[in-house]
Design a protein around this nucleic acid. Sequence first.
DNA 1: CATTTATTACGAAAGATTTCGTATAAAAAA
DNA 2: TTTTTTATACGAAATCTTTCGTAATAAATG
Lengths: 129, 129
Amino acid sequence: MNLKSKFKPTDAELEILRVLWKEGGSTVRLINEILNASREVGYTTTLKILQIMEQKAMVKVDRSSRTHLYTAIIREDETQKHLLDELLESAFGGSAKKLVMQALGNNKTSQKELDEIKNLIKQLEGGKQ
Amino acid sequence: MNLKSKFKPTDAELEILRVLWKEGGSTVRLINEILNASREVGYTTTLKILQIMEQKAMVKVDRSSRTHLYTAIIREDETQKHLLDELLESAFGGSAKKLVMQALGNNKTSQKELDEIKNLIKQLEGGKQ
DNA sequence: CATTTATTACGAAAGATTTCGTATAAAAAA
DNA sequence: TTTTTTATACGAAATCTTTCGTAATAAATG
């Protein structure tokens, strides 16, 4: 079987993880219905991806009732970090500055969020000097 | 044929694009040698990916001499933007703040770079108020 | 000129991911 | 109890990506 890192979810897996992170433990039916709000996808397709995710230890399954309950094992922030690090290396040559400036450049970040980023930078500077 | 967006390069394509962005117009041989500094990959593999990239209009080819010269058509910053936007949506639910804080959080960004980011934020704030 | 080397073209295998059809069984409804 | 609905399991098809083998040919070398 294919066993890539559990922190590098495929697109379909990430789509499901986002549902699980938001909703907590969920049934296949619920997950599939939420996915179908954005795009058409068959029930057994969703089930199959979840079963693969279980093999990769991305999710755990409660089989105590007939309708299984799926829960994410890997954490949202950890997964984000892995995906971001990967993009940082593969597309930005490791320059976090370039990446951050690209991310902020589109002008969609609110003043409140900018303030929070400024605070983080202050903190980082404090630790540095 | 398969014609996904030319701004969503696959991993192998991105690896080659990075060489082209750095080196400018290059021969297959040069590209392949640079790739082989990091990992083993056959000459015809590199050639094939380049030919696919030409079909997707990611690169253009000068065939005036027998040894073809490949040049990137899509721009580095545009491609970075597309990949980042995609990650922003798919993994960070659209929150640039979360993404930026995750990117800066690892403490690898220098004071000079932090200063540049602060300046960008000032600029953004200027445009906002 | 003959042989070796370098280059491109291209099909197809190999690998990975996504999708679905079908079988089976449990639960619910009639 | 019989029928219908709902759920899981699982193989396999479909699609996409990466890799390579082989053929054809041009260029370089002996």
